[in-house]
């Protein structure tokens, strides 16, 4: 039974958390890659808009909780997501009208857009902190576990236990549904096709009668949906702190670049690679190896390649390797 114990241990402590984290990153990286391919700039405000979207969802959750509304064992926040999406669609469209639209009109350089997104980042960050402060807010409610360590042990009879938190399961299921819907939208609907055409060749798309402003509006709307979902799921899983959302910027960009900027499929694959690499390298393998090694050869140290504080270093190393060896990313992203 030893290998089975090892498998259970690694699943519980690494695979499930990494899969959930990867799904959250994937939703974020999809937003980044969409903005990059349609609007053609690196959206630095992504982390902070995610935080603001989550703040809106948290507000809605608290309101619903005060009204006594709940959905069985699932977190109430899921009910508040539509409200968060509505707020963020309006917010991002307002930001586009007030800020980015002018730069599109004057055909500003990409870096001017990036600069403008820094401004939006500051404003968004200020608004988020105005509502939420800087301390951690937990808004997970309902049934915390789908099955607990003890239940799993009793069921399987193994020494190692495994738990599945509701937040993790919700994350994974939601992310998969969203990805399927997004690909269906991009490949099968008229609006999605016009987006891809615009991303491929702007001038040709204009000639075929695609209205660029409409494409932009759709892009921001989809981005809003993606980032509210990503932010809420991340917050449910790990608690809400505005600064953590800012720090997600690096892994999200790394995921998008690794997959190939502008390629939605790449963003998803990249996100899971980043998540599993971060978790795997900062994971203490001792427990797992103790099960696998023959008796008397158990590792004496934690068998942790890097301390958890260096998870950014892992992301960064991935980024550097991509930049050095395959700057277009796995799925041959946009222009280099």
């Amino acid at each position: 039974m030893e290998p089975l114990n090892a498998l259970v241990s690694v699943t519980n402590f690494m695979l499930i958390p990494a899969f959930a984290y990867g799904s959250q990153l994937a939703l974020g990286a999809l937003g980044i890659t969409l903005i990059f391919s349609i609007l053609r700039f690196a959206h630095f405000a992504h982390g902070d808009t995610m935080a603001l979207g989550t703040a809106a969802v948290i507000g809605g959750t608290f309101f619903l909780q005060a009204q006594g509304v709940s959905i069985g064992g699932l977190p109430t926040a899921l009910l508040a997501i539509p409200f968060g999406i509505l707020v963020m669609v309006l917010y991002l469209l307002a930001a586009d009208r007030l800020v980015y639209k002018y730069f599109r009109k004057v055909k500003a350089k990409p870096l001017t857009f990036v600069m403008a997104s820094l401004g939006v980042m500051f404003v968004t960050n200020g608004i988020t902190r105005l509502f939420m402060g800087v301390s951690e807010t937990r808004f997970e409610d309902g049934q915390r576990f789908i099955f607990t360590i003890r239940e799993f042990r009793e069921w399987s009879g193994l020494a190692e236990g495994m738990a599945l938190r509701t937040a993790q399961a919700t994350t994974i299921v939601t992310a998969l549904i969203v990805m399927v819907v997004l690909f269906w939208f991009l490949n099968r609907t008229r609006a999605g096709k016009s987006m891809r055409a615009y991303s491929d060749n702007e001038d040709l798309a204009l000639l075929s009668g695609i209205n660029p402003e409409r494409v932009v509006v759709i892009t921001w709307t989809i981005t809003a949906i993606l980032l509210v979902l990503a932010g809420t799921l991340y917050g449910l899983d790990k608690g809400f702190r505005p600064f953590n959302y800012f720090q997600l910027l690096l892994p999200m960009f790394a995921a998008a670049i690794l997959g190939g900027l502008g390629s939605p499929l790449g963003a998803i694959v990249g996100a899971y690679v980043v998540a599993f690499a971060e978790m795997g390298i900062t994971f203490a393998w001792r427990r797992v190896l103790t099960y696998l090694m023959p008796e008397g050869m158990e590792p004496s140290t934690m068998m942790q390649l890097l301390p958890v504080d260096y998870k950014f270093a892992v992301t960064f190393a991935i980024l550097v390797l991509v930049l050095l060896f395959r700057p277009t990313g796995i799925f041959k992203g946009k222009v280099i």
């Binding site: 960009f253 260096y310 950014f312």
Partner: peptide, 27 residues
């Protein structure tokens, strides 16, 4: 590593290195 590629790549790379420098100093 990052110069000579797209202009945004330098931005992401510097963003990363600054987080790492702080992580090293803290840890």
């Amino acid at each position: 590593v990052s110069l000579g590629l797209r202009s945004d790549y330098l931005a992401i790379a510097t963003l990363g290195i600054s987080e790492i420098v702080i992580a090293v100093l803290k840890h």
